[in-house]
């Protein structure tokens, strides 16, 4: 009987260690990928965009989605949906009417990918954050976690998909540009993130009266693959100003890192208390 019990504890310990091991191995892997590769991204220049919706239409066609029928209008906020991966919006700002494109931001440290328990949401080493249908179980935790409210779920389907911009990942690995960039004249600029930041800085320096001196996406949510040049602050362009400047997955880091210590300390403590109370009880019995 004692051997059985010992064996049992051993198996518990092994199970516990696998969980710890699994949890511990996740973080450093992502980091080394970060260092090796350069993420691709897209720079959107709102001073060039004329709101023609050519990118929206090309996107819908490329991904088998219905062509959008509504137009960007001041005062109407269009949102991405399960039928539309990107939208253009128009805002009346202190600098006149400004167009803004909304789609997945392709964060450097995406909350959706950190949230996903099957790695269906996945930050590729090329930069795009993609969704992989065969892995997804449809829990929608990515939607809870994404600060930009990007992933959209097909509630009307019995085999629902998550719809979101994937930066045309299939084209990027073939060496092509995303369809929106391909279609657009000049407002969208594709390149590695480093190039994009340099290009954005250059534009700001060249025509400072056209832009505010800040690139939206350079720091927000820990940095995003999509970068914005605009004449006004992001708050005027429908962006949620409460989105924090640092990484979202970092918010759960403390909790996840405490797991291994809990797995070691709590059982030890419990066994200790169990042993302590046991000896006291036998003493009591001896007195009887």
């Amino acid at each position: 009987m004692t051997i059985d019990r010992r064996k049992f504890f051993k198996s518990i310990a092994i199970t516990g260690m696998t969980i710890i091991g699994v949890n511990a191995s996740g973080a450093p892997k992502a980091k080394s990928e970060d260092e090796e590769t350069e993420f691709y991204g897209i720079l959107y220049d709102s001073s060039i965009c004329i709101g023609c919706q050519a990118c929206e239409k090309a996107c819908a066609k490329a991904h088998g989605l219905p062509e959008p029928t509504d137009k960007p209008e001041v005062g109407v906020v269009r949102k991405t949906s399960e039928n539309q991966r990107c939208v253009l919006n128009s805002y009346e700002t202190s600098q006149g009417e400004v167009y803004v494109r909304n789609q997945c931001m392709h964060c450097n440290e995406p909350a959706c990918a950190a949230a996903c328990l099957t790695q269906a949401m996945y930050k590729t080493k090329e930069g795009p954050v993609i969704w992989r249908e065969d892995k997804c179980m449809g829990c929608r935790y990515c939607m809870i976690s994404c600060p930009f409210d990007v992933p959209k779920f097909e509630y009307g389907s019995t085999n629902p998909k998550i719809q979101k911009c994937d930066m045309c990942y299939d084209r990027i690995i073939k060496g092509e540009k995303p369809v929106c960039v391909e279609t657009c004249g000049d407002a969208l600029f594709f390149g590695t993130r480093r190039e994009l930041v340099a290009e954005a800085r250059r534009r700001i320096a060249e025509i400072p009266e056209l832009y505010i001196d800040s690139i939206y996406g350079e720091r927000v949510a820990g940095g995003t693959g999509y970068l914005y040049l605009a004449p006004v602050a992001p708050g005027e362009l429908g962006f949620d100003t409460r989105i924090q400047p640092s990484s979202y997955p970092a918010l759960t880091k403390g909790f996840l890192y405490s797991v291994p210590s809990v797995f070691i300390l709590v059982p030890t403590l419990l066994l200790g208390i169990h042993e302590a109370t046991k000896s006291r009880k036998t003493k009591d019995e001896n007195h009887d």
């Binding site: 949230a115 328990l117 099957t118 790695q119 269906a120 759960t252």
Partner: peptide, 15 residues
């Protein structure tokens, strides 16, 4: 998927 196979989203609280 999160229980078997190589789909461990180990950085996820939900996992």
């Amino acid at each position: 998927n999160p229980i078997i196979g190589n789909n461990f989203g180990a950085s996820s609280v939900l996992f």
